[in-house]
Design a protein around this nucleic acid. Structure first.
Lengths: 175, 175
DNA sequence: TACCTGATGACAGTAAGTGACATCGTGTGC
DNA sequence: GCACACGATGTCACTTACTGTCATCAGGTA
């Protein structure tokens, strides 16, 4: 992972071959593919942990919380994690921004988060389509908040940005 | 396109080589790649037209319409198009459902629709983040409505399903 | 000591995608 | 009627991601 990220950042994702990564890491190309399904997957190793965080946060929310409130709590928790690792997150994102296939991979990971959160809501007794709608709304907020958090120089608090966007979403959909 | 779809449906996307498609279509592999950036893109030829429909529907909505109302109209218009071509849409979707990379491609097309609609809203004077939030909400509704429309045997009206989901979204986010 | 097992290497092969150049058919100006 | 320009296609060589298969090797166990 370290070798791959180093090369992706240094010379670009497209310009980096798996052979180079393997050599830098001191192993074989074949071994690389035993750990990562493809060249892209290296950048999404943390997705599993993120999903667990979201699911457990939704699951552990107070029973009285409405679906969207539980989702909001989960997204904020995710935001806090990003905030803690700002440097690494920014680096990773600069790489992703340069390559379409990486953006595709990121989107399917987000879609997986939606499914997982919707499942966690259903576990709480929330019916469809409310569960899916809430989960989708949460990821939509995360996407926009994340983009702003990265795009703007002045470092805002991501969790706070997320809260503000949930409020804005409420206003926008109320019309 | 016809040759590719035929083969994808008949023997599966993964099992179909570009060489086969080219042969069936009576041209060269190289020529195939002059028309389609990759093997996946064939299935998304209509994305451009869909985007135009969404953008123009948003643009042409009455000035008095709130952002979410304009978005709702656009998504319903898209739904109507799908409804008209139900057979083809279903066929296409069975192919996409079998392959992860196709799902990724579909997601990035949807993300492109979000950007386009958000742009159309900004053109109407809607500020960020309202524009992006509304557009994201609209695509979220479309995704869920589409999944239900396809998944259930009893053929419901897609536009109607979409309308119901916008209402549900309003309720869900109001909490 | 024999053995089992999980991780890695070695190697051959498939197929997607790209770049460079040749060819061909069609229309246009003269 | 002819030379020419140009867009579309074919040809070919090449890179590289990814896969299947078998050999090897190190560490732990009976």
């Amino acid at each position: 992972m370290q070798a791959a990220l180093e090369l992706y950042v240094g010379q670009g994702f497209d310009q980096t071959t798996v052979a180079e990564i393997a050599e830098l890491a001191g192993l074989t190309e074949r071994t690389f593919f035993r750990y990562f399904a493809d060249k892209r997957e290296v950048l999404f190793w943390g997705a599993g942990a993120l999903q667990e965080l979201l699911v457990s946060t939704v699951a552990d929310a107070p029973e009285s919380d409405a679906p969207i409130v539980a989702i909001s709590a989960a997204i904020q928790a995710a935001g806090a994690v990003f905030q803690e690792q700002r440097e690494g997150v920014l680096l990773r994102q600069t790489v992703i921004a340069t390559n379409t296939e990486l953006q595709e991979r990121e989107l399917i990971k987000l879609a997986s988060l939606v499914s997982a959160m919707a499942g966690a809501l259903r576990q709480r007794g929330v019916a469809e389509p409310s569960a899916s709608l809430s989960a989708e709304a949460g990821i939509a907020v995360l996407k926009i908040a994340f983009a702003r958090w990265i795009g703007e120089a002045n470092e805002q608090d991501l969790a706070q940005l997320i809260r503000a966007l949930f409020v804005e979403l409420k206003i926008v959909t109320a019309s």
